[in-house]
Each structure stands twice: as structure tokens, then as C-alpha cells.
Amino acid sequence: MKTLGLEATRANKTYKTGTEWYAWYMLQEFKKIDKENKFVVYYNRYLAGDLKKAPENFYFKSLPWPFEKFWTHIRLAWELLIHPVDKFFATNALPLFGRGEMIVTIHDLGFYKHPELYHPLERIYQKMSHRLAVFRADKIITISEASKADIISYFPKAKDKIKVIHLSYNQDSFKPISPEDRLKFMDIHDYPDNFLLYIGRLESKKNVLNLLKAYQKSSRKWPLVLAGRPGNYGYKEIEELVKHPDLKEDIIFLGYVNQENYPKLMACASGFVFPSKFEGFGIPILEAMASGVPVACSNIPALKEIGQEAVIYFDPDNTDDIQDKIEELFKNKELREKKITKGLARAKDFSWPKVAKETLEYILK
């Protein structure tokens, strides 16, 4: 029997995006598939929801820390130094010190490849944290072949300790919606019959500004719905453009959409657009494909790896190309149906139990 350490700070966040949901699913799935090894789950102050419900081989330890940053790097590090575990798995960052084998997931190196998309302080913090993770890790998990190539390009010595394990989406929630349920949901929330949907943070690295510029040039026969919270960098420019008289009547801001409404909103969309300049994976395009919604997204390596032939691709730096592909998504009925069919099939290749099984096998190897 091995003792495995896990940190639950990301899984414990109220407003979750890709990395937080990954942490949440790994913890929840590990509870289901391993009844033999001992798991010690570390967290700061309290655990929300069902996170603390677990079988007898799971133990939970609160490590209070008065500061917003560096809980993992310092407080957790001290705990692992005094009370080491056989293996410690982190879903995003490793402690500065501590004993036992260290395994970490590195999602992407966007702050290296596109530093202009990050706030300077965030860029410094991320570079420091990821350099430490690569240096300290005995094993590295990453979420796409594209991310693996990036890690090797910046850290060549890490090549032999990297394993690619794709992420997934909630298969129980994201599925095509019946016409009756769609009509009911649309009436309750007063959404238009046809709309183009973007879901994600409203910030520079998600390339929302270019999406708005492309949409401004389009025929705009369908509203653009933006679902997501303001990001840390670039939101002011997005907000200013949306206020333009030529745009403000055709754009709907929803803010953060809760997990009850999110899958229904996705399934009701006439099309989904994902214009990111950089991604390590791209869970939202999987969610859209599984919902039977045609997708237009950036032609960046990670998204092409995940979407394959099920998606319409555009150059994220070319607003004319973004405009053309969005128009095509709505106007070319034959292409829409083809992409929907391929998307539904492609989405079946992914599941969180599969991700957790492969991850745990690699940790225990």
C-alpha cells in the first residue's frame, strides 16, 4: 500500500474553469477507482460541497494559511517535509520543498509562447512556478501532444518524464437537447431563437477582442452571446468595443453561467466559437461537439489535435478569416450537419473515468 498526497485547493474553488474542473474530477474519480492505497488530501481552511465525502482510505488535512498566494509553495511544502508521503500529485503547481516522489500536471506554457497576453506580474509568477514544477517533478503529465512539444522546447531535459493524458468533459451533462426542452429553456431565459455562443473568460489570451472585431464585420443576423467572467488582463478593451453603437444591440453578456444552466445553454446554441490564441487542450469545444453544436475555432495545434475533422478552423489573428468561418458555420447547412455528426462521434473518445485511470496508473508506476 502506498500513501498518496493530493491538494484540493483548485478543486475547491467556487467558480471553476478548465484547470479547476480537472482537479475536481481527478479527486472525485480517484475515490471511485482506488480502495487500496491511502490518500491524504490537503486543503486550506475548508472544503465545499461533496469533496469531503470519501471512502475510508481517504484522509483530509486542513493547512490554514493567511495569505492569498503561495499556499502550495510554502505551507504545503512544510507539511510534506515534516510528514512526507510516498507520492504527491499536484494538478498545477508543486511545493518548493518536501519529501517523496513528485508528480505534476502542466497544462500549457502560454505565458512563455505569448507573454503579451498576460499581466506582467502573472507572467513572472507563472514562469517561476512552472520552472520549479519542471525541476522538482519526477513525473510530468500534460494534456496534449501540443503542450508536450512546448514543454520539451523550453525544457529539453524533461523529455523522458512527460506523459500525455487528454482531458475530458461531463458526459452526463453535455448532450443534444430535445426540441421541447430547448423551447422551454429559451422561453424561461428569453434567449433569441438562433445565437452564436462564446464561453470562457473575457480576456486577451482568449482573443475575445478579435472575435468582436470579426463579428462587427459580419452580417450579424444572429446575436453573439458572451458567457464568462471578466479576465485579469484585457477586459477593458473588450468592454469598450462592446459599447460601440454598431455592436451593443447585437451582443448579450451573461457573465458566469452556473453548472445547472451551462450545458443547456450550450445545447441551445446555433453555433459555438472558440477564438483562443493559445490553449493546452480546449474542453469547451468537446462540450459543444457532445451537445450536437457545430464549432468554429482557432487553428492552433491543441485545438486541431482535439477537434480533428469535426471542427471548422480559422486563423485567430485574421479577423476576416474568423468572420468568413462564422458566416459559413451558419449559412452552409450541409457543412453544419457534417460537422455535427463528426463532433458527436469524436466526443465519445473522451471520458473522465478514463483520464483518472490513466493518471493513477502513471502516478503509481
Results as ranks from 00 to 15, higher is better:
285 I>V: 07
267 A>D: 04
259 Q>G: 15
297 C>L: 13
281 F>D: 06
260 E>C: 08
223 P>A: 13
268 C>E: 02
237 E>C: 09
273 V>F: 07
229 R>H: 14
247 L>M: 08
241 L>P: 06
223 P>H: 11
277 K>F: 11
271 G>D: 03
242 V>E: 08
311 V>F: 04
312 I>T: 10
312 I>Y: 13
256 Y>S: 15
296 A>I: 11
218 S>Q: 02
229 R>C: 15
245 P>A: 15
298 S>K: 03
285 I>L: 14
314 F>M: 02
251 I>Q: 10
230 P>Q: 02
249 E>D: 12
310 A>L: 03
296 A>V: 05
311 V>M: 00
274 F>M: 03
307 G>D: 01
220 R>T: 05
242 V>F: 12
239 E>R: 09
246 D>I: 14
260 E>K: 09
303 L>T: 05
255 G>L: 01
243 K>C: 14
228 G>V: 04
310 A>I: 02
237 E>S: 15
315 D>V: 00
227 A>N: 05
223 P>C: 13
293 V>G: 01
221 K>E: 08
261 N>A: 11
235 Y>M: 03
273 V>I: 11
270 S>G: 15
249 E>N: 13
292 G>T: 05
261 N>T: 07
262 Y>C: 12
240 E>P: 00
278 F>R: 13
308 Q>M: 15
246 D>P: 06
277 K>H: 14
297 C>I: 09
285 I>Y: 02
235 Y>R: 05
244 H>P: 04
284 P>M: 10
260 E>R: 14
235 Y>K: 04
275 P>F: 02
315 D>G: 07
315 D>M: 06
227 A>Y: 08
238 I>N: 03
274 F>G: 10
289 M>W: 05
260 E>H: 13
313 Y>L: 05
314 F>A: 07
299 N>R: 08
274 F>Q: 01
311 V>N: 01
224 L>Y: 11
297 C>P: 07
315 D>P: 01
244 H>I: 03
223 P>K: 09
285 I>D: 00
272 F>Y: 10
254 L>P: 00
235 Y>T: 06
281 F>Y: 13
277 K>Q: 06
230 P>A: 01
282 G>A: 01
252 I>T: 08
235 Y>G: 10
273 V>K: 02
285 I>N: 00
236 K>I: 15
264 K>F: 12
218 S>C: 00
305 E>Y: 03
276 S>W: 04
251 I>Y: 13
261 N>E: 15
265 L>P: 01
243 K>N: 09
274 F>K: 07
259 Q>A: 10
254 L>E: 05
255 G>A: 07
305 E>D: 11
305 E>P: 04
259 Q>K: 14
228 G>T: 08
262 Y>N: 14
314 F>E: 02
303 L>S: 00
282 G>L: 11
266 M>K: 12
280 G>I: 00
231 G>D: 09
293 V>I: 09
245 P>E: 10
270 S>L: 12
278 F>M: 15
295 V>Q: 10
256 Y>L: 05
231 G>Y: 09
